[in-house]
Amino acid sequence: MTQAYVALGANLGDAQATLRRAIDDLASLPHTRLAAYSSLYRSAPVQAQGPDFINAVVELHTELDPMALLAELQRLEREAGRERPYHNAPRTLDLDLLLHGDTVLHRPALTLPHPRMNERAFVLLPLAEIAPGRVSPALLAQVADQRVERL
């Protein structure tokens, strides 16, 4: 089993309910076990417009390789009504694979570790909640000016 971390976000519809449902859906992925999930957080959109986002991070233990896990995440997004009319559009559900074990990957569809995770308080704060060893105080200090509220 490989330890993987997935960031969840939504800012359309009932985002809190969507994230709770997505956490349940992630727990039922094939060859995967939900190990931990963070609290929900509210954050302002970053490089986007629209309502505030609700965010969380989950830890999965999975036998799926990174591309197979990505395919499952994209399937769950589609099932939640995710549309991609333009870059950074508001969304019903966004699932980003942050880390997959020690995998370093650079493909058009997937880069691991996630290339912008260390720039985003809405990722680092929930990740630090469930995996404090993965987030240094220096990283948290770099994003301290971003508004994020734990719900």
Rank of each mutant, 00 (worst) to 15 (best):
T2F: 00
Q3G: 02
A4P: 14
A4S: 15
A4I: 04
A7K: 05
A10H: 08
N11G: 05
L12F: 08
G13P: 06
A15S: 15
Q16R: 15
A17S: 12
L19V: 12
R21H: 13
D24G: 15
D24F: 07
D25H: 11
L26D: 09
S28R: 15
S28Q: 15
L29R: 12
P30Q: 05
H31D: 13
T32N: 06
A35L: 12
A35I: 10
A35G: 01
A36Q: 11
S38Y: 11
Y41W: 13
P45H: 05
A48Q: 13
Q49W: 00
Q49P: 00
Q49A: 13
G50W: 09
I54P: 01
I54S: 01
N55K: 04
N55S: 08
A56I: 05
A56D: 14
L60G: 09
L60E: 09
L60R: 06
H61S: 11
M67V: 14
M67C: 10
A68T: 15
R75T: 14
L76C: 11
L76Q: 14
L76A: 11
L76V: 12
E77G: 03
R78K: 13
A80E: 04
R82K: 01
E83Y: 00
E83T: 14
N88H: 08
P90K: 05
P90A: 04
R91C: 11
D96V: 13
D96M: 10
L98I: 14
L99N: 00
L99K: 02
D102E: 15
H106N: 13
L110W: 11
T111L: 01
P113E: 03
H114V: 04
H114I: 06
R116D: 11
M117V: 07
N118A: 10
N118L: 10
F122T: 08
V123G: 08
V123Y: 08
L125A: 03
L125E: 10
P126K: 12
A128W: 02
P132G: 04
P132M: 01
G133N: 12
S136E: 01
S136Y: 07
P137Y: 04
L139I: 01
Q142S: 15
Q142E: 13
A144V: 14
Q146P: 06
V148F: 03
E149Y: 08
E149A: 01
R150V: 11
R150F: 09
L151K: 09
L151V: 14
